[in-house]
Amino acid sequence: MHDLLPVIAAGIVSGSAYALLALGIVIIFRSTDTVNFAIGDMATLGVYIAVTAIGFGVPVAGGLLIAIVVAGGTGVLTERFLIRPLGAGHKSLFIALVVTIGLGLVIHAALGAIWGHRPTTIPAIIPGTASVFGVALTWNKIVATGIALAAMALVAWFFRFTPMGVAMRASAEDHFAARIVGINPGRIAAIAWFLGCGLAAIAAFFLAMDTSVNANLTLAALFRAFAGVFLGGLTSMPGAAIGGFAIGILDNLAGRYLSANYRDTIVFAVIVAVLFVRPSGFLGAGRKERV
């Protein structure tokens, strides 16, 4: 067990991407009852545009910002023009999900058509590697994890202390009561979608930096993020973040101690087991769906 620490460290590093995606999914679900299946494709779109900008000489940090803004903006437009017209009500819950599936297909196809299928890369922010708990990690990964953690801390601060953040929590709890104290539901939805997709863009950006920019950039990470969401519950923000990290660690533990071949199997087995044992996740607020 002497190498447990490095495996956990590696798990936290890869888990930070899952946690960001999971957090994005949950923030959007809480505000508009929509599971956004296109979140990965929107984030990838942001990364592609960022890479193009970097190609024109924009610094890498500026590229990250561009990715966030593009993905966030796509999210805002999606909510306004595709989700909101569907109306509220539990019957439209699954319909909204299918709409985002459709949108994901469109974005995915467009990425391939516009940028082609030749992978490109993003230059490292800081080249080289460092040793953490005896495991060699690229500086890239360390910086990525740091930024991911900082972004999550910022989100936590936003929801805890700013009036808008408090208003968003209020709105998630009771749409009607939020409306009558003067909170604009459209603005809440827009901010949630911007935040959710923006966080996903951070994850996608670092995934791209790690490997390469391609249209299926977030696919594997997104399934793990969903596993994290199931662990934590669709309605809990801390649950999503913790769930994402937990999946990252589990994934690495399974790969190290069981079988690298069966990593995915184990992750999916966990999802199914959790759903059957506790459909609302371990930190979720029950099977809450508005009627």
């Binding site: 459709g102 949108l103 297909l105 469109v106 995915h108 196809a109 391939g112 058509a113």
Partner: peptide
């Protein structure tokens, strides 16, 4: 045309 059908499916669904 790669990705064409994916595009059409997405648009049709939405």
């Amino acid at each position: 045309v790669p990705a064409f059908s994916e595009f059409v499916f997405g648009i049709a669904t939405v």
